[in-house]
Design a protein around this nucleic acid. Structure first.
Length: 214
DNA sequence: GACAAGATTAGCT
DNA sequence: GCTAATCTTGTCT
């Protein structure tokens, strides 16, 4: 990846749109994480949308709590939660203030700082397993609860920047992984035939395909 | 205070 | 494919 000085965060307007559009448009974008003066880069390959208004799987569905309060802020804020006693999940709030929407960043392709990420993960055998899951991604990027409420439109410890080098790909949608509610909704998005995506049978149950040209 | 559920993962069969 | 590990959060008493 290129020089940090040349990288610009995607603007707030990018996130303050329809959550499903943002979830699909985040595919191919690059996470920039500054970890102890070293830059780590991961290209986003898989996302899931969560929409407070009508989505029973969403943490902000019909209720405001201490945990989900950041989801009601304007798009661009970071929502982190701790799950199953071990893992963090990294979400970006979308839409307008008061809506309660977010996109979960599920997987990515490591681009730079791979050795550091592998150290943080505890040395995986296959590079494909480095960041192909929401818990793994957070571990590899050193993301924890401290990032709750940060803003990815600011050029600080973590932000998202435009795709580099990727010309075109096919975006697929499927049901979301690991849910007991709202599992029928086609709110998961991933890059077709990309090896850095969660291994799951839903990868073979594609609901829609969209050709993307950058 | 107690208790059940959970947007996961690694490891084993 | 199946399951244990592990603990925060939300909800109820």
């Amino acid at each position: 990846m290129s020089d940090l000085k040349k990288l610009t965060p995607l603007p707030a307007e990018f996130y303050r749109r329809n959550t499903l559009e943002v979830a699909m448009d985040l595919l191919g974008k690059v996470i920039v994480r500054i970890y102890r003066n070293q830059m780590l880069n991961v290209m986003i390959t898989e996302t899931e949308a969560y929409i407070g208004d009508h989505d029973p799987a969403c943490h902000s569905y019909k209720k405001f709590t201490e945990r989900n309060r950041i989801m009601y802020e304007q798009g661009g804020k970071v929502y982190i939660y701790f799950i199953y006693g071990n893992y963090y999940c990294f979400n970006i709030v979308t839409g307008q203030k008061g809506e309660g929407n977010a996109v979960l960043i599920r997987s990515g392709k490591p681009l730079a700082g791979i050795e550091k990420m592998n150290n943080l993960r505890g040395h995986v055998k296959n590079i494909h397993d480095l960041t192909n899951g929401p818990g793994k991604l957070c571990m590899a990027l050193g993301i924890d609860q401290k990032f709750y409420g940060d803003d990815v439109t600011e050029k600080k410890k973590i932000f998202i920047t435009a795709s580099k080098g990727l010309k075109s790909f096919t975006a697929c949608s499927s049901r979301r992984i690991g849910l007991n509610k709202g599992e029928h909704l086609p709110y998961r998005f991933f890059i077709k035939d990309n090896p850095y995506v969660t291994l799951h049978k839903f990868n073979r149950e594609i609901i829609s395909e969209t050709k993307i040209k950058l």
